[in-house]
Design a protein around this nucleic acid. Sequence first.
DNA 1: ATGTCGATACTTTATCGA
Length: 261
Amino acid sequence: MKISTWNINGIKARLDGLLTWLEQAKPDVACLQEIKSVDEGFPSERFEELGYNVAVHGQKSFNGVAVLSKKPFDEIIKGLPGDDEDDHARYLEVVISTDSGVVRVASIYLPNGNPVDTEKFPYKLRWMDRLRDHTQDLLALEEPFVLAGDYNVIPTDDDVHAPDAWRGDALFRPETLDKFHTLLNLGLTDAYRACHFESHQYTFWDFQRGAWQKDHGIRIDHLLLSPQAADRLQGCEIDRFTRGWEKPSDHVPVWIELNTD
DNA sequence: ATGTCGATACTTTATCGA
């Protein structure tokens, strides 16, 4: 079972590229972030034509997450628990049945947190605490699950072209990394790091300053696996070629192959 | 210091968020 994540930075602007990639990459489950669309504006029928079931948790202009799945959804949960006041559409969790049992998949768009001297940074940190708490609840289920998305977190110096230039950024601040490592230390596996030892493999290149041409990227899109999912991990790849397409997103797809025979 | 995108609105240019 192939499970992917891609921050597409606007579904309307990216529809053609996304459809092309889906037909080529053929993921069984595709987690999308930053759809920047309300549920009613999401072109579900275009994905249904390709054989996908569609779950959407959108909002006007900003944020918004979705999951496409070849298999039907047993369950759809919108929003990250822990704060009824939080109205950002950043979390969508689904349950899918496979031949070897259920797999739970979440599409995550973790807050960016910049600028760090505004309310945006503490909001990011609180959101990460809520994700930690929810992950603890999920781990108690002892199911295979995949938390896939744009974490807006650069895990280590090996995941950024110029670490010192990013130290003060919300994606690389010590407080951010502490919370990310706390999450991993609950027992999750960073799928890409479990499969690859190479440094400087990126999933995002800024639109500005010729970042793509100079390979000035960062690795911030991650698939974190529960122990039961990690046991079934067969591979993880970054489809960096989409960054060279016409009208690209600033992020590229990342995917895993899970053995669900 | 600046650069670039995408979405939006008291729109055809500025603002916000990234």
